[in-house]
C-alpha cells in the first residue's frame, strides 16, 4: 500500500519504509511539525526534497492533484489538531467524507456509525450529546473520536492517523486503539499508519512495524530566547 524510498523532507529523512495489507505501522516523528510534514509528503500535499513515495502502487511524483485526490479518497485520514472543519458540527464532520465520496446510502451510514460508536465505547445518548457540538466546543478526545469516525466511515483500505493519540488520557487512547484493532480485524486487506510524536505510545499501540523519522542535518529548530 505504501512504499517509501529515501524520503527527504525539509525537516526529516526516512531511508526506506513499506506498509502492506494487514499492517498496523507506527511512524515515530521527533516533533509535531515533522509528523505534519511527513503526512503531507506521504499523501502528496507537498513535494519531497528527495526520494519517492508510492501510494496504492502509484508514484506520487508522476501524478497530478486530481489523481492524488482520487488516491486520498481511498484512504481515511484523522488528526486531533486541525483535523476537523471548524464551522461544521461534529456529526457533519463525521459524515463529510462518506457523504462526499458517496460510500453508502443514509441507512447504511447510520448502521455503520452505530457500529463504530460501539467500538469507540460511546453510548448513543453520549454520542447524540457530543456530536451536536462544534469542534472548538468539544474536548480533545471527542474531537479525536469524530476525526476517527470520519476516517473509518469511508471504509478505507488504509487509515492514516496524524498525532491522534497525543495528549489523550490512557483510557481514551485505549478506546481509540481498540477501535482501530476492530477495524483492521474486520478485513485483512486493510492497513493503518499511526504517525506518533515521540515513542511514548508505542507500547500501547503494539504496531507490527515501526519507522523512525530522523531530523535533517541542516534543519534547525527555532530556539526560544
Amino acid at each position: 500500500m505504501i512504499a517509501i524510498h529515501a524520503l527527504e523532507g525539509n525537516q526529516f529523512r526516512l531511508p526506506d519504509a513499506a506498509v502492506a495489507a494487514g499492517d498496523l505501522a507506527a511512524v515515530v516523528a521527533p516533533s509535531a511539525a515533522c509528523a505534519r510534514e511527513f503526512v503531507d509528503l506521504l499523501l502528496g500535499l507537498a513535494t519531497p526534497r528527495g526520494g519517492s513515495v508510492r501510494l496504492f502502487g502509484q508514484a506520487l511524483a508522476s501524478t497530478g492533484e486530481p489523481a492524488r485526490l482520487a488516491l486520498r479518497s481511498r484512504l481515511g485520514f484523522a488528526a486531533q489538531a486541525e483535523g476537523l472543519v471548524g464551522h461544521l458540527a461534529l456529526w457533519e464532520n463525521v459524515l463529510l467524507g462518506a457523504g462526499y465520496h458517496r460510500r453508502q446510502d443514509a441507512a447504511g451510514l447510520d448502521a455503520r456509525v452505530r457500529t463504530l460508536l460501539g467500538w469507540c465505547g460511546w453510548t448513543e445518548a453520549e454520542a447524540r450529546r457530543v456530536l451536536r457540538l462544534l469542534p472548538d466546543q468539544a474536548a480533545p478526545f471527542e474531537r479525536a473520536v469524530a476525526a476517527w469516525l470520519r476516517a473509518l466511515l469511508v471504509e478505507p483500505a488504509l487509515v492514516v492517523a496524524e498525532n491522534l493519540l497525543g495528549g489523550l488520557a490512557a483510557e481514551a487512547r485505549r478506546r481509540l486503539i481498540g477501535a482501530s484493532a476492530h477495524f483492521l480485524a474486520e478485513d485483512p486487506r486493510r492497513a493503518a499508519v499511526f504517525v506518533l510524536v515521540g515513542e511514548a505510545q508505542l507500547e500501547e499501540l503494539q504496531p507490527t512495524a515501526v519507522f523512525y523519522l530522523s531530523l535533517q542535518d541542516d534543519f534547525q529548530a527555532e530556539v526560544s530566547p
Binding site: 485526490l69 486541525e82 467524507g97
Partner: peptide, 18 residues
C-alpha cells in the same frame, strides 16, 4: 480566511475533497 489559517483546507485535501 480563517479556514485557511487554521489548516482546514489541508484537512479537506487529505480526505480527498477538492
Amino acid at each position: 480566511g480563517l479556514m485557511r489559517q487554521q489548516g482546514e483546507l489541508r484537512t479537506l485535501r487529505l480526505i480527498g475533497i477538492d
